[in-house]
Amino acid sequence: MQSFDFNYQQFAEVFARLGKKFRLFGPKRVPGRGRFSDTDLITYADLQNPEDLETAEKSYLSPKSIVFPPDETTFYFTADQFTEPELSDNRETIVFLRPCDINGIERLDRIFLENGKVKDPYYQRRREKLHFFMIECRESFENCFCVAMNANRTDNFATAIRFAPEKVSVMIQNESFLEAFAEVGKKSDFVPEFVKKDSKAVNLPDVEDMPADIFSDSLWDEYDSRCIACGRCNTSCVTCSCFSTVDIFYPDSRNCGERRRVWDGCHLDGFTDMAGGHSFRKDKGDRMRFKTFHKIYDFRKRFSEDMCVGCGRCDDVCPEYISFSSCINKLSDRLSGGKKDEE
């Protein structure tokens, strides 16, 4: 393991050098493309130069689109044959992301690669190309609770980077990146630090098995009227992995088309629609309960860790100011026999 310091001009040189060989993907500020006029959208996107990299603010959307695009064609079909598309970009990819998001992609790995015998090939071929360049995160943003979710730390990165006002410090774990950095940088003893304290205290439920009556507890009722089913909590979440399979037919053909998988989410209308018109979890409170249990309870039963990584994006983006972390706390209170009445 070696570390180096750079001024921003030197870092730009390394960035350019890496860009010749790798696809570079990271948090990017897109001016004027925010939800409201004259606001910026901070999203994950391809980076052309180091100035594209937004290191000061949390992104609105997560990096999951690099392994799990919102809309992916799995195959094209004609009357009697089908073809799987090649990836349009076959380069190895460097992703700049924070520890919570590295943990988040590991959660996606559980679902797509380790959940049952078959590894998801569409996910796998994208995932294999990734190299994590960790953006050091020492202090919680608003709504973050990664410490509570045990997702504030990771050692799963090729390099770790600190963006300080005057210099950039990089620790290199993956030796194959050493050359690109070592030529320009000045040796240093930089070691990344991690968030130690959440901006908001979140207490996870301390139960082995959920008591059956908590499923019908009045705790969930308020979300029936508060949630508007916009699905932002799902689309912004780094660990939400649900998709719907959609067949589309080309307009002028009876038997040509393609199969796609498209992001879906448990808060969106239609998510539980079934053949015959049946739909379970019609009430938004039921959807909130389902999501909460999945994120902090039943995923753990299968994979020994919670799904939620505490990035807090669901709280950041909810237009109705529903706080998932507050919901976790309410659930914990209820399970420990605490507050019964809604405040």
């Binding site: 493309r33 006029s37 919102p70 916009c230 689309t235």
Partner: peptide, 10 residues
């Protein structure tokens, strides 16, 4: 305003 994925922007 309605789009949850910023597919629509200005």
């Amino acid at each position: 305003l309605a789009c949850p994925t910023s597919a629509w922007t200005r």
